[in-house]
Design a protein around this nucleic acid. Structure first.
Lengths: 122, 122
DNA sequence: CAGTATCCTTTACGATACTG
DNA sequence: CAGTATCGTAAAGGATACTG
């Protein structure tokens, strides 16, 4: 039986898969982890890299990732203060499971696009 | 540079990673693909398996997965009609990138829980 | 059985303005 | 620079009732 099975809403919180992956399945979370692959980045650098994320949501998402132990937050007093974010060992470990998905997405992009067109044409 | 970088909202739709993974990063999508690992299942069986998904949302999500080419939908006329869902080859291919994440989540559940407690205690 | 239809709540996200 | 505060919109999800 699947490890994701749950009957009640309360059980769902005790499901490891749901609980852990819950943090990662927003619009930005996995992209943020990927963004830190090559080393620490400052807040504004991350924002520039993703381009179309709002400041509010970026802060919010970085906090979630920090809370779950994927990301470190380092403040260098200023002014102006400099805050840089990086991956923890656990974040890097999670990244390794994320990368195959990114590759998969890149490789199967056209197939998915075709499937969508075919489906919409019916 | 990252393959996920995008500046404008329009560019984002042309980003393979965002476009492909966008379908998968809801609350249920990846769980649904996992649910079909061991073979086809009927609508009601999937619903029972997940337990706490509403009928409306289950239909909606299965349609999205069908549209993107991950899932097949087979109707056996009734009454009562029987509708079963299964993975396409592409769905099974996607599943293979999903499984490591599920394993990772199971293995790191307690570490994430501890990280959350530590963070909240500050 | 496998949906639709409808309504409602919650969550996510975005835009803008302001601050140490 | 790296936020916070506030407000508004949109998307996701849930509950319930109804149907071929």
């Amino acid at each position: 039986m699947l490890p994701v099975t749950a009957i009640t809403r309360e059980d769902a919180e005790h499901c490891p898969v749901r609980s852990v992956l819950g943090t990662v399945n927003g619009k930005w979370q996995s992209l943020l982890i990927l963004a830190l692959e090559d080393g620490d980045l400052r807040f504004s650098a991350i924002k520039r890299l993703l381009g179309d994320i709002s400041q509010r949501v970026l802060t919010e998402n970085l906090r979630m990732l920090e809370r779950d132990g994927y990301v470190t937050r380092t403040v260098t007093p200023g002014p102006p203060v400099a805050v840089s974010y990086g991956l923890t060992p656990m974040g890097r470990s999670m990244l390794e499971t994320l990368k195959p998905m990114v590759l998969w997405a890149a490789e199967n992009f056209s197939a998915v696009q075709k499937a969508r067109l075919d489906y919409d044409q019916m």
